[in-house]
Design a protein around this nucleic acid. Structure first.
Lengths: 146, 146
DNA sequence: TATATTTAAGACAATTAAGTCTTTAATTAA
DNA sequence: TTAATTAAAGACTTAATTGTCTTAAATATA
């Protein structure tokens, strides 16, 4: 699996938050209800994003979470690295510690450009651009209940 | 993480087996000792590869494992899908069941070509080509003990 | 000030992945 | 035929991830 469940949830939830375009804070409960994600689990994921300064949170009535900066200044790469860490973009595909130019693994050369592509893709996708796509193409963030 | 530990081990071990260019069977113990992979764990991984007809195994003295077909006819994609399954190349990046052309997630369009690249990379890398690189460039499969 | 609302934090449980150990079956060779 | 060698199979343990629950802290409002 490319992304952990935590990261999958984090992306969907943050994207949903963005799409609401709400002035103030949005409660985590509203988001978890809407996207069918465990409230407590989502709370923990948001805590990571808050600690990484991607979100702001506020306690008490009318509290919740909000983007910490404009939606065009938060990328998918920000979200992924804040939750899963940078391993996907830094570590050897074969898990060999110390794999590098000096003594590379058999996939090193081929994986380098591929990893850069992936990173570029994640870097170019901002919450703003994705939220725009969301509107334009009526994309989905929810699981369908049949 | 892109690949599971099982797949990482499976690739390294199969590649090592290929590089030996041995006529008969190579014992799993020899491979696990050489690459510092748990013997029993590697045995299970090889069992999957044997069941997927990528390896042949033989019990008893002078037994072990061997490639089931020429090294240029086994790809990295074969190994990855045999061990981890095809999810990486088939499932939605955001984990939305039913994500597809009809009702795609916000990453669907961007991820499609990227996934195809990745798949092509894994499909073009055969055990033969990687083993050749291994010789030519003195690449490494082992963890370095300092 | 008291109560309700909301996130923070941490304990705990369930599930999955990773790793170990033991027994069985197949095969060779003495 | 007996003993040694090797993979197969499955039980078991450990660790990591995922998910749940409870309590504490912060804040607003009545």
């Amino acid at each position: 699996m490319l992304l952990s469940k935590s990261t999958e949830y984090g992306i969907r939830a943050t994207l949903y938050l963005t799409s609401l375009k709400q002035e103030g804070y949005v409660s985590i409960r509203d988001i978890s209800d809407e996207l069918d994600i465990s409230f407590h689990f989502l709370t923990k994921i948001f805590q990571k994003l808050t600690q990484a300064d991607l979100l702001q949170s506020f306690r008490g009535p009318r509290g919740g979470v909000a983007l910490a900066r404009p939606a065009d200044q938060i990328t998918l790469l920000d979200l992924v690295t804040a939750i899963d860490g940078p391993a996907l973009f830094t570590e050897c595909v074969l898990g060999l510690p110390g794999c590098g130019e000096r003594k590379p693994c058999p996939l090193h050369e081929a994986w380098g450009p591929e990893r850069d592509n992936l990173k570029a893709l994640f870097e170019n996708a901002t919450l703003a651009s994705m939220a725009a796509d969301l509107e334009t193409f009526d994309l989905r963030l929810k699981i369908l209940h049949l």
